[in-house]
Amino acid sequence: MGSVSKRPDVKICGLQSVEVLKSIVHFPISQIGFVFAPSRRRITPEQASEMISFLHERAQQGHRVPKTVGVFVNPTRDELADVLSVAKLDIIQFHGEEAPETCRSIKEQFGVELWKVSSIKNEEPPVNESSFSDIKDGVNGWIQRLDPYRDAVDAVLIDTFDPVYGGGSGRTFSWDCIPAARKWALSAGMPLIVAGGLNPDNVGDLIEQYEIDGVDVSSGVETDGVKDIAKIAAFVERVTG
């Protein structure tokens, strides 16, 4: 288990402009996310490329810059190739029903890190650590669905299920399932990232109560659907201290 003193990484998802990126790039943010799946935050590969170019320029000047994450839902291989030929992403985040063998193949073909999202339905019963050993027997629902990915991806992200887009709903799920997810991630040797309805007001409670490796936020740092620099600053401060 990692050091309890380490603060979780921060991912700000759904960026749409260089102007916003320039206003937040000096914050201790570990990843920024671009949405290529159906969403009001969806951007083109060219828009992402502009932001990536800005980050590369800063990196060449000696600045620390966040990694870039592209969010996809059940993309075809051609769609991925089209995006990655224009926007040189560091990480692909799969938010759909992508199979483990697909994840392995994509990692190898494109030379990127790959995160897999597990979306949790709030009507699913909470999972506790005591039943973790029963994963192989099919007891643990969504955690059992994760198990085939333990050698196929680099990180797992848990989010609230959305019936339209799968995730990205801006709603929280039952946090009492986090300890079991954390135990699974440790057993798989990969980070656990938590999303779903996080904002500056509740993220402090999350990281105080649970040991996780990263947090992911989008709508929780927006005002009227637009990224709010003050909310991003407050969110990052609550996480990183």
Rank of each mutant, 00 (worst) to 15 (best):
T102K: 06
P66G: 03
E129T: 15
Q109P: 04
I229P: 04
A195W: 05
S218E: 01
Q47E: 15
S3F: 09
S30G: 11
I106E: 04
A155G: 07
P8Q: 08
E98W: 08
R145T: 10
Q47A: 13
S30T: 09
Q109R: 14
K116N: 06
M1L: 11
G166I: 05
K67Q: 10
H56V: 11
S174G: 09
R150I: 11
I158D: 01
F36R: 03
V153K: 05
E50L: 12
A81Y: 06
C177R: 15
K116L: 04
Q60K: 14
L157W: 04
K116V: 05
V226H: 11
H95M: 02
T68M: 01
E50R: 13
G2E: 15
I12Q: 06
A188D: 08
V71D: 02
A87I: 01
T76K: 09
D151R: 10
I229W: 08
V20T: 15
I120N: 03
K22D: 13
S17H: 09
V4M: 14
D9C: 09
Y165L: 12
N140T: 11
L15H: 03
S118R: 13
D205R: 13
R58M: 09
N74I: 02
R104V: 13
S5R: 11
Q144M: 11
F110E: 00
D134E: 14
K116A: 06
G141Y: 06
S53R: 12
A230G: 09
V217Y: 06
K136I: 12
V239K: 02
V73A: 11
G2L: 15
V164W: 05
G138W: 07
S174M: 09
E123P: 05
F36W: 06
L15Q: 02
Q144T: 15
F34W: 04
S133L: 13
R145Y: 04
K231D: 08
I143Q: 07
F36G: 01
V25P: 03
D90K: 05
D213R: 00
L157E: 02
E19N: 03
L55I: 00
I52M: 00
K183E: 14
H63N: 10
D151N: 14
V139F: 13
D82M: 10
S219P: 00
L21T: 08
G225M: 09
G196P: 00
S131W: 12
A233C: 10
D216Q: 03
Q47M: 10
V156N: 03
G62A: 06
D151H: 12
V221R: 07
Y165S: 14
I193T: 00
R64H: 12
A181K: 01
P75E: 04
V164L: 13
D216H: 07
E50K: 14
N122C: 08
S30D: 15
E57N: 08
V226F: 11
L21D: 04
C13I: 01
I207A: 01
E46V: 10
A155H: 02
V221E: 05
F36Q: 00
Q31L: 12
G141E: 09
V164Q: 14
S130M: 12
G214D: 07
G96Y: 09
F27M: 15
E97N: 14
I232Y: 08
V164P: 01
S119F: 00
P148R: 04
